[in-house]
Design a protein around this nucleic acid. Structure first.
Lengths: 205, 205, 205, 205
DNA sequence: GAGTAATCGAGACGGTACGTCAGGTCTTCCG
DNA sequence: CGGAAGACCTGACGTACCGTCTCGATTACTC
């Protein structure tokens, strides 16, 4: 039943695309300027030149708006909506470092940094949002890592019993932890060290 | 004059200890009941039987109150204010698993879970708070792990060039990431798998 | 463009009449019960079942609310919104006494007494409010006296050079002075004595 | 029993005269600068370099402080604490005008104007204060007028049945009314016109 | 002079109200 | 009907003062 005519829901076919875009753009610019706590629905509506009701009609919370906006960022990427495939040279470590450095750049960049911080903050106290964030922003990024790791495992470069989602979380999770809580700004060296430790392990040879 | 009586700051010697305790206790119980977004200074003051000004006099934000409250939790631990020393048997992996399981219990427990989520959310958008959280709650926990790892490295169980703070962040950071964003509830098995992967590394032997 | 739609002012056409009435009624009842210093915007909003913002949107101060409420009292008078015309019998002194006795009754009555005291107090320190009070509550009352006096002067009963506004102020001003500062309660005899002295003068015949 | 040892009352003999003076002076200067509504006990204590309790110990309200301060103004008059006697030339009207012009100057002057406005405002809603204001500031001024009028009546210049307190109130009351509510600033001409009308009466000769 | 009792400056405290901001609902009018 | 606009009720914000209280440190009488 693809019938969206459930009563109580607005009719998406009549939606004003111009308003939608304006709201998402306003959300990103406001988070940039005033931070997440300063992002209010009223300011959002004002900046977007839109009535408040138009926001409430289509989104359950300002965090949901921001999530949509970030996803929009993904899709509007210069390389097109499809995420670039994971690099796949002969050197696994180098490939992973390349990917993790890009992640660092994303987290510390102007574009994704502020809204992602805001989403992380909101998701920490809102499981529904956390699920959305995971599924729509995080999952694609994890998937790229897992794909490259899977290739490596198939090639015998990785232990056969390596838990690839877990390995991905080792890389991205501890990176995120430092990004959110750490005192210092993330750099490429951090990414490299992370990859080295995760691949080689810590135990004495 | 090393006198820290900078004018403009209230005189800490005249502070009402009863009020301080009541505020910290109220903060914990309110976060438990209503969640962080529902924790308002007004409710806090009401619950603690205290004027709002008494909160604003001593803390810059509700997050700061919560941070103090969590530290109080640490100090009021049944085992006394001193953190229990890291276990140190012959089996490094077992020791780390024990410690990481305890961390899982802390994160998912009634006592620390809710306020820590709240602090993490607030810290994500507030660098000053993030620094406080890191220094006062996280640092002691990291230190325990690093101590045990240092012992192991001295005993030749770990690679001589292992970056111990980084290893600790691998364990605690990725655990925190799953705790905050993950869909599933953290369990002891997660802790064990984490330790195994980190120690052994992922590369094929 | 004679368009008075200066931006920044709320749109009066969308004003909620029910709320307006409730606020004015609440103001009168609260001044009655708690006195002017006890009349707080919060209590007013609570009593009227209205948000504070709805008061701040339309009035600059609680005194302005009270002034509107008193004017409303005038307009809701049993005799209709028009002030009863001044009595005009052949006996000027009797007519003035009748009017001044009515004024005494107004000042000492339940209806006008308390809010007028409050307005007088507020107006003493707020020139803008004083002007409003003068124009909207006092002026109509003065005008009735001046009308009767003008008739009398035209009939040759008064000195040709009598300053009628001044005479009115002699009557109403000194009455108000006793009402506000005097130890005793105003009575009809006071009104009569006032009229007699003002008409006859004090000099020996 | 002149024994002031009633428990609960402070011992006036141990009172700090320096503090008392500082408080009264601060009250006058603050009313001048910020107006009566802006005169707070805390600002008063701060300006006077005094603890709040020292004010609460000796005065029941800030209005009472102001009343004392105004009385102090009277006593510190350049001519000495005694009010100058009413002028008593052969010309009653001229004498009264002189006195009333002086009253106008007092009301509109820097010295008495602001605190008197404040006291009038407070007294309008506080009968106890009104009594104090009447007895301690107003009564002496009324008495001067009544003395001069009594002399005139004894000399046959006034009607034998003239009610002298009432006449005084005609002059001072209507003057005060204009001072508090009027749009224009009081001037000597107002005083003169008042005296003329009150003496001659308004009725046609 | 030493003891002692009250005043004094200071300011923390539990409160009340302030005036503002924003949330989410609602109504009105326009396209 | 969707959308812009914005009034409405609600509730929290952070601040200003209230009047009470407790704390040493004078200060001034009593013994």
């Amino acid at each position: 039943m693809a019938d969206p005519t459930s009563r109580g829901f607005p009719d998406a076919t009549r939606r004003n695309e111009r308003a939608r875009r304006a709201i998402l753009a306003a959300a990103l610019s406001l988070v940039d300027e005033t931070g997440y706590p300063g992002l209010s629905i009223e300011a959002l509506a004002g900046r977007a030149g839109v009535g408040k009701q138009t926001i409430y009609r289509w989104w359950p919370s300002k965090a949901a708006v921001l999530l949509d906006a970030c996803q929009g960022l993904d899709e509007a990427h210069p390389d097109g909506p499809e995420p670039s495939p994971a690099p796949d040279t002969a050197d696994l470590a180098a490939d992973l470092k390349r990917m993790l450095r890009a992640t660092v750049d994303e987290l510390t960049g102007e574009r994704y940094g502020p809204p992602l911080r805001a989403l992380a903050a909101a998701a920490a106290c809102d499981p529904v949002l956390a699920a959305g964030l995971t599924d729509r922003l995080l999952a694609p990024r994890h998937a790229r890592f897992e794909r490259r790791l899977r290739t490596a495992r198939a090639a015998g470069e990785l232990a056969a019993d390596a838990d690839l989602p877990l390995v991905t979380e080792l890389l991205l999770g501890s990176l995120a932890y430092r990004w959110l809580m750490g005192r210092s700004v993330l750099g490429h060296a951090d990414a490299d060290a992370l990859v080295d430790h995760v691949l080689r392990g810590v135990s004495a040879p």
